[in-house]
Amino acid sequence: MNSSAQWLSILGRFLVVVLIQIFLMDRILLFGFVNPLIYCYFILLYPLQGSRIWLIITSFILGLSIDMFNDTGGAHAAASVFLAWIRPVLLNFSFGVSYQYNTTKIPNAPLGQQIIFVFTAVILHHLVLFSLEAGSWTYWYLVLKSTLLTSLFSTVLILSAFQFFSRKSI
C-alpha cells in the first residue's frame, strides 16, 4: 500500500470510529451505566509499522474529539494517549516478538492472543479514563465496577469488529 492511500484509510477509520462512538455507542446504556467504548479499535488497529509519534498524536486528537462531545474535559484524550504509548508493550506481551517483523496481522492471529491483547488494552484504557472522570478516589468502588463491566462489553464489540471489518487477505 502506498503512503497516501494508507493515510486516507487511517483518516476514514478515524471518522467512522468517532461517529459510531458518538451517535451509537454513547446512546447505549446497558444496566443503566455501561457505555461501551468502541473507539479504542482505532488505536489498537493503527498500522503496526506506522510511526509511534503519529500514533500518539492521532490518539490524542481522537480522545479530545470524544471529550468535546461528552463534556469530559480531557479524560478520554489522556486515556487514549496512555493506550497509544503502552501499545507496543501489549503487542509484545500478547503476540511475542514476531509482530515486530511484520509477519502477523492482528485479526489473523490466534483468537486467544487477540482476546488477551484487546482485553488488557481496553481495561488499562478504561481504568485511566474512569479514574480521571471520577476525579477522586472517594468513588473507587464505582470506578472499578464500571471499568470491569464496560471493559467486557468494549472487548466483545472490538473483537467482533475485528472479525467483520478487517480485510484478512492483505
Binding site: G74, A77, A78
Partner: peptide, 8 residues
Amino acid sequence: LFSLGISL
C-alpha cells in the same frame, strides 16, 4: 499530551 489531558 497525557498531562495536558489531565489538566483539561
